[in-house]
Structure formats: structure tokens, C-alpha cells
Amino acid sequence: MNNLIKADNEYQQWLANLKKRIKQSQIKAAVKVNTELLELYWSIGSDIVKKQTESDWGDGIIEQLSLDLRLAFPEIKGFSSRNLWYMKKWFLFYSGENIKLHQVGAESSSKMPQFVAEIPWRHHTEIITKCKSIEEALFYIKKTLQEGWSRAILIHYIGVDLYRSQGKTISNFSSTLPSLQSELAQEMLKDPYNFDFLTLTEGYKEKELEKALTDNLTRFLLELGTGFAFVGRQVPIQVGESSYYIDMLFYHFRMKCFVVVELKTVKFEPEFAGKLNFYVTAIDRQMRDKDDNPTIGLLICKDKEDVIAEYTLADIQKPLGISAYDLNNILPETFRSSLPTIEEIEKNMKNF
């Protein structure tokens, strides 16, 4: 009888709907609990600022309050002196550090802003200790909500300064893509890209950079951002009787398009865009499906002059972006000669 029920389509649809409702209920409950906790922390932070302003208790109030609250509520975590300092800093960060006494008690500053209620407390502590402005903090709050970032991912993107790099790519998207797609494309690219997770020797070649990025694909995908899927490296395309090889090819699920990535270990030159344009055309004609949006090309160079990049892209009809990359982990060229070659390693392995 149980097997008959499990095989019934109506039962399966009902079960799927029920699972969805339960999950939504869990999310709502979690958001509600988080909101109530944040409201408590906000009120405590507000009270600490107000009491320190009104009284002569000084910073000792935080140590004493922590001790008393932990004695009164030993089963509740979150009342350490460090966390109370965070509550004070959090309140001041969004209310302004030079708040006058009458403003502290005002409704506008005593009530927690709605925009901070939807991400966890530990995300907030990272944001207020690492961000320099409310605008920057709001950027990371928004991205956390949009992308579902964990605390570790948030820390990574703050560390690589996504706030100042995202959307800064020189591109021609506004003239080659529809308005909405143009905005999404500009937002998904960065300038510069941070390749500090790589270690290369001086004088490294493009193939070495490409291989290093492929070997560290997880980190590279994290640096590219949400939505990128790796299609391949040195992807072959046949045009006429000639064969060509694309450095790296990705597909972006949010944009629903292929992204051709070409790497250059030198400063940008205008002729680089011509080859990238050619590759984008080839992917559009040979690999793009009817449901895919136009392919986008991204050229990542060691360096570039923005005005030259802008001039280069002005009359190109395919959507292209040009970015630089940072790479600080460079070993001296002499270090290369001290390393065994692949052939030497394979030869030694045969002796075991």
C-alpha cells in the first residue's frame, strides 16, 4: 500500500508542495528570530551610547554590564564584553559617531533601520569593522542578500575590495546590449581582478597564467563572482580551414550567455580587442543556442590605460569588456631554475 502511495503523482505533487511550505516557514522563522535578536542588540548599543553620554561611567560600563548579564542569563550567548563593544560600534556606525544627546533618544536613531534586519549578526560585525562608509556597508548587505553569501564569502569579497572593483570594467555594453542586460553585464565584471591566490615566477607567460588559474579554478570562480560555470580551457574553434583556441570559456547562468576570457600578461594594446571580437563572433555562430543571449568577451590584461581601452571599444559591435589584474605573489626568476621540470619529476617517479 505504501509503495502505491509513493508512486502516485498526486501524492508526489502534494509532498513537494508541503516540503516547499515547510522550508518557507523555516526561513520565515529564522528571519524573525534574527530580526528580534538584532533589535535587541541595537537597543543595547543605543542604551550604552546614551548612558555613557549622560553619565560618567566611561568604558567600564561595558565590562560591568557584560559580567552582570552573563550572571543573570548564563544560558544565553552574546553578552561578552567584546560583543557589547560590537553592539555599540554597530549602533554608532549607522547613526553617526558624533550624535548629540537629544539625537540619541530620538526615534530616528533609536529604531533599527529595516535594511540591517535581514542578514546575520556575525555578518554585521565583519561589515562594520572592515567598511569605511555606510555606502560600502550597504553594498555588502545587498550583495549578501542577493547572493546568499556565507560569512566566509563575505570576508573574502571585502578583502578583495569588491565594492571598488565591481562594475568598473571598461566596456561597450551600453551600446551593444539591451539596457537591462547591459546593466547586468557591467555589474558582473570587475576591474581589477585579484589573482593574489596565484604564485608565479618573474617573466611568466600567458600559458602559465592560464594554467595557474585553471589549477586554482575554485578560487578563480570565486574571484569572477556568482553565476560563472567553467566550460573549458584552450577551447578549439574551426573557422574556414584554420583552427583557433580560446584561452578560457565560461557560461554565465544569470546572464544566460557564454563569456569568452582572453588573458594577456602585458599592458593592453588595441589589437588585442580584434582577436577577442573574432572569438566572440565564432562562439555566437557555432555554440550559442537560440535561447542564449549574445556572447560577451572579457580581456584581462596585466595593465591598461582606460582612455585607450575606451577608444578601442567605441566602434566595436560585439559586447566586450577590458579589465586589469593584480598579482603580488611573484617569485624571482632565479627561483625557476632551482625547480625540477615536469620531465625530471616523472623520471624520478619511475625510480620508486
Rank of each mutant, 00 (worst) to 15 (best):
D292K: 10
N293I: 02
P294V: 11
P294G: 10
T295W: 09
T295Y: 02
I296L: 14
I296Q: 01
I296T: 00
G297D: 07
L298Y: 09
L298S: 02
L299A: 05
L299G: 11
L299H: 03
C301P: 00
C301L: 01
C301I: 02
C301S: 06
K302A: 04
K302M: 02
K302P: 01
D303W: 11
K304Y: 13
K304M: 15
K304Q: 09
E305H: 13
E305F: 11
E305S: 05
D306G: 13
I308Y: 00
I308D: 00
I308A: 00
I308Q: 01
I308V: 08
A309R: 04
A309K: 05
A309G: 06
Y311R: 14
Y311P: 00
Y311A: 10
Y311K: 13
Y311T: 12
T312L: 03
D315E: 13
D315S: 10
I316C: 03
Q317K: 06
Q317I: 09
Q317C: 08
K318E: 11
K318I: 13
P319F: 08
L320Q: 08
G321A: 07
G321P: 04
G321N: 03
I322H: 05
I322V: 14
S323T: 15
S323F: 15
S323Y: 08
A324W: 02
A324S: 15
